[in-house]
């Protein structure tokens, strides 16, 4: 279900044109961009598939949004300029909450991991969207906006604007934006850190349009020139198969549930942090970061082992 004015649909031609431009400019050495055709195919097809998945679950999400709106605390007018300023901040905070929780609970990570499973970072990666974000209930993070009194159509439009904003930051072509911009907004540099698997960068920079939440809540990490980003997930995918890309974490979670020996274990596999295991034999990102911190000497990394 989409509102009559859908920023994402309107932006599709822009997505296509800029991806074409990024590839062509990289081909002639004008910008930095790395595209592996099979990886590109996975990212773009995940994007297309997510629009179909959205059709299936969008109705339910909209119904819940409208239901909560009945009990709104205020009535915020859609045609007031201040309301749009307010929703920019409010929606972005909701996005921050959703995004951060997606790294702290496997049930939500199982969907969000789709966006991060590429070892590349380009405009096509931006379109690598989850197919299962509608079924794990992560959208409840936006319901408080309805309760506050933002009209459901306004919330949907602002969610779309945020998604469109986040498209352009998925690029290596832009090194740094002006300092004032980097200070306030999410940028290619900040979001490269978010897509990294380096222990130093794990679980950082959750912001959508703004980076201020990360700075406020202690999850901000600037990109360091001494530590080039290695993209992907802790356990990278071993092939290119769309169904495996879309469902691997769900299948992993299902297998773990079948092997669970108690309700506590089952709950841990679903609601624990990604990488949680009853005996600690697997690693969560906190464990990886701790291990890395322990092995760190005062000297920061000067080489990039992945750049081989």
């Amino acid at each position: 279900m989409r509102p009559s004015f859908d920023p994402v649909t309107l932006a599709v031609p822009l997505f296509i044109l800029t991806i074409v431009l990024e590839i062509v400019l990289a081909r002639f050495g004008k910008v930095k961009a790395v595209y592996e055709p099979k990886d590109t195919a996975m990212s773009l097809l995940m994007g297309l598939g997510s629009s179909v998945a959205g059709l299936l679950t969008g109705g339910l999400i909209l119904a819940a949004t409208i239901w909560v709106y009945q009990y709104r605390l205020f009535t915020i007018p859609m045609n007031a300029w201040w309301a749009w300023v307010a929703i920019l901040f409010a929606e972005d905070l909701a996005y921050y909450g959703f995004h951060r929780f997606s790294y702290e609970r496997r049930l939500w990570w199982a969907a969000h991991v789709n966006h991060h499973s590429s070892q590349h970072y380009n405009l096509a990666t931006a379109l690598r969207q989850s197919w299962t974000g509608g079924i794990n209930g992560a959208w409840v993070m936006w319901l408080p906006l309805s309760l506050l009194g933002f009209p459901p159509a306004m919330i949907l439009i602002q969610k779309g604007i945020s998604l469109v904003y986040q498209f352009w930051i998925h690029t290596e072509a832009v090194k740094r934006m002006p300092a004032w911009f980097e200070a306030v907004f999410n940028t290619p540099s900040h979001h490269r850190v978010h897509h990294a698997r380096n222990p130093r960068y794990l679980d950082r920079n959750y912001g959508g349009i703004l980076i201020i939440w990360d700075k406020m809540f202690g999850t901000f990490q600037p990109e360091l020139d001494v530590e080039p980003v290695r993209y992907g997930i802790v356990k990278n995918l071993g092939g290119f198969n769309l169904l495996r890309v879309a469902f691997h974490e769900w299948v992993g979670m299902g297998k773990d549930l079948l092997s669970a020996k108690s309700v506590r274990e089952a709950a841990g596999y679903v609601f624990g942090a990604p990488g949680w295991s009853p005996d600690g034999s697997r690693q969560t990102s906190d464990m990886i970061r701790k291990q890395w911190q322990d092995t760190q000497t005062a000297e920061p990394a000067k080489t990039d082992p992945a750049a081989v």
Partner: peptide, 21 residues
């Protein structure tokens, strides 16, 4: 959906042509 699918085919072909892996 159909137009996007066709565009995806073209973008993958372009990425293969560019040899920028």
């Amino acid at each position: 959906f159909a137009i996007s699918f066709a565009a995806i085919g073209l973008m993958i072909a372009l990425a293969a042509w560019a040899k920028i892996a």
